Simulated scan of single mutants.
Amino acid sequence: MLELKNVHTSYGRIQALKGISIQVFPGEIVAMIGANGAGKSTTLMATSGVLPIDSGEIFYKGRAIHGTPPEKLPPMGLCQVPEGRRIFPRLTVDENLALGAFYRRDRTEIEADFETVYGLFPILKDRRRQHGGTLSGGEQQMLAIGRALMSRPQVLLLDEPSLGLAPLIVQKIFDIINDINTTRGTTILLVEQNANLALQTARRGYVLETGRIIMEDRADALMHNPEIRKAYLGE
């Protein structure tokens, strides 16, 4: 569904990714874990076209997409929920969600998707006339995910969905991530600082360190790996 082959990218003279290769198969949740600065978010930004790559290749459903303008990818079914939510604070919840479907013309189905999103996140329906900037952090994260779902993604790139949220809200967010994957069949590439939660959620995982993949395996195998438990799971 998604493949990165030997991807290199940089911020000025600083090389951020040093030959990243990742495969994500249809219907999977794949997690990327690693310390801050390891290159996890950079990998997602390179995949979504926000950050140009220096070399390597990125394929979506077998089609090369490196060099594709980022605004062209959501209509193709590839959408990112960025770190820090990045909702539009002066727009209402309804307006934020509508922007997720800005390229679509199927009005009846768009209305149905509004109801689907509000079914997943009932609190957003209660806040639908409220400006995004007045929502709590958890509600803003729900809105960011809901906005992405309005594009009907086949592959969803999720960047730090638990960042800054209370544990109960985090669990709710991840319950919904699992629901999106199982009921809608959406393939998910997940970047998450909470390595334990990420590996509990994912089928497979990649471990990044200073712009390189140092390990890949089934999520359950990574969870039981002594090195991973010591470095990332607090043991």
Score class of each variant (00 low, 15 high):
Pro69Cys: 02
Ala38Leu: 04
Ile188Phe: 11
Phe102Leu: 09
Tyr118Asn: 00
Thr201Cys: 09
Leu51Asp: 06
Pro226Trp: 13
Gln130Ile: 07
Pro153Lys: 00
Lys125Asn: 11
Thr187Lys: 00
Pro69Glu: 08
Ala35Leu: 13
Arg86Leu: 06
Lys18Pro: 06
Ile14Glu: 07
Tyr103Ala: 14
Lys5Cys: 10
Lys61Ala: 15
Pro69His: 01
Lys18Glu: 13
Ala46Met: 05
Thr186Arg: 02
Leu189His: 08
Arg85His: 03
Gln140Ala: 04
Asp175Pro: 02
Pro122Ala: 09
Ala144Glu: 05
Ser48Glu: 08
Leu51Gly: 04
Ile110His: 07
Asn225Arg: 10
His131Ala: 14
Gly205Asn: 08
Asn36Phe: 12
Arg105Asp: 14
Glu95Gln: 14
Arg90Ser: 15
Arg86Val: 02
Ala98Arg: 15
Asp217Ala: 15
Gly19Ile: 02
Val7Gln: 01
Ile22Glu: 04
Met150Thr: 01
Arg152Ile: 08
Asn96Leu: 01
Pro70Trp: 02
Gly27Val: 09
Ile177Gly: 04
Ala46Thr: 12
Ala64Gln: 14
Phe102Ile: 13
Thr108Tyr: 13
Ala202Leu: 02
Leu158Arg: 13
Gly62Tyr: 10
Glu227Ser: 14
Arg128Asn: 09
Ala31Val: 06
Gln141Tyr: 09
Gln140Glu: 00
Thr9Met: 01
Thr210Pro: 08
Gly84Ile: 07
Thr116Glu: 15
Ala166Gln: 10
Met142Ser: 07
Leu120Phe: 03
Thr92Trp: 01
Leu143Gln: 02
Arg129Pro: 09
Asn225Ser: 03
Gly56Asp: 10
Glu83His: 09
Ala112Pro: 00
Met223Gln: 14
Ala144Lys: 01
Ser55Gly: 12
Ile22Asn: 05
Leu149Tyr: 06
Glu216Tyr: 03
Ile29Trp: 05
Tyr118Cys: 03
Thr116Pro: 04
Ala35Thr: 10
Ile228Phe: 03
Asn196Ile: 11
Val155Thr: 12
Ile213Pro: 09
Ile29Ala: 08
Ala101Gly: 01
Glu95Ala: 11
Gln171Pro: 08
Met76Ser: 06
Val93Ala: 08
